[in-house]
Amino acid sequence: MTRFILKRLALLVPQLILVVVGAFLLLRLLPVDPVTQRVGIFATEEGRAAVKEELGLDASLGSQLGDFLGGIVRLDFGEAWTTGDPVFEEIAQRFPITLQLIILGFMVAIAIAIPVALYVASRPVGKADKGTTVYALFAGAQPDFWWGLFFVYIFFFILGWFPAPLGLLDIHLIPPNGPTKFVLIDSLLDWDIEVFVSVLKHLALPVITLAFVLTGPILKIMRQAAMDVHASDYLLYAQAGGSPRQLRRRIIFRNALAPTLTVTGILFGFALGGAVIIETVFSLQGMGRYSLDRTLSVDFPAIQAAVSVMAAFVLFIYLLLDVMYAVLDPRVRYGEPG
C-alpha cells in the first residue's frame, strides 16, 4: 500500500509540471496581443515597447517561463496586470470561496445520494427507485444556472427563507480575517456566530443548487454499483453462509463505493471548472468569476496562476481518490507484488 501511494505521488510531479507549463504555453498561443489590448491600435511604437517591457513580454519565452516556474516555488505568481496586486493574494482570497461552495455541495450531494442509492438498490423498480430515476434525469437535463435562478425565485423571492443572492455576508457584517480564509471556518474560530449564521444562510442556496445537480449522477452510479453487488454471487453466498444482515449491508456499501468515488472525482473537476456559473448567479467572488474576468481582460499572470492552481487541486483530488480506491478495492493495487 505504501508503495502504491509513493508511486502515485511520484507520478504527481511530472503531472504538475506538465499542467503548469501547458497553461503557460497555451496562453501564449492565444491569438490575442495583450499589448494592443492595453494601448489600443493607434499607439506609437515607443508606447508599445514601453508597455511590452512593463508587462515583461520583451523577455524571451524561456526566461518568462523560468520566472513563472521560479515564482511558483516561492509562492509568488507576480502582479496582476489588471489590478497591480499580487496574484497570489488575489487567489488566496478567492479560491477558498469556491472551494467552500463546492466542498459543501459535494458533502450534501454525497450525504443524500449514498443512502438513497443503497435504499433504492435494495428495492429495484419500486416507487422510490422510479422516483429517483426521474429525479436524476430531471436534475441532470437542466443546466445548473437555471436551477440556481429557480431556487432563488422560490426560496428567496416567494418564500423569503434565504437572503438575496448577493455575496456571502449580510452587508453590515465584517468578514473575519482568520488563518484559513474559509469564512465559515474563520467565523467559527473567532466565535462570531452572527457572521457564521449569515454565511450559512447565504451559502444555502448555491450549495443546494450545486447539490441538486450533483446528487443525480452520484445517485445513479451508486445505485447501479449497489445493484451489481446485489446481483453478485458473493452477496448471495454471504447470505447462504448465514452472514448477518448488517455484515451484508457493509459488503454492499464497500463494494459499491469504489466506482462511485471515481465518478465523484471526475465531477469534482467539472464542478471546479463550472463554478463560474453558480458564482455568477449568486454574485460570489470566487475562482470561477476570477478566471473568467481575467481571461476576458487578457491578464496573463492571473490566468496562468488560476489555471495552474485549479489544475493542481484537481490533480490532488484525483490522487486522493486513487489512494482511497486502492484502499477500498485491492484489485487496483497494481504496483504491489501479488
Binding site: 458473493y234 453466498y237 463494494n255 478495492d329
Partner: peptide, 9 residues
C-alpha cells in the same frame, strides 16, 4: 465459481 463467491475486497 469460488472466486465469485468471495467478497473481492
Amino acid at each position: 465459481h469460488p472466486r465469485g463467491a468471495f467478497n473481492p475486497v
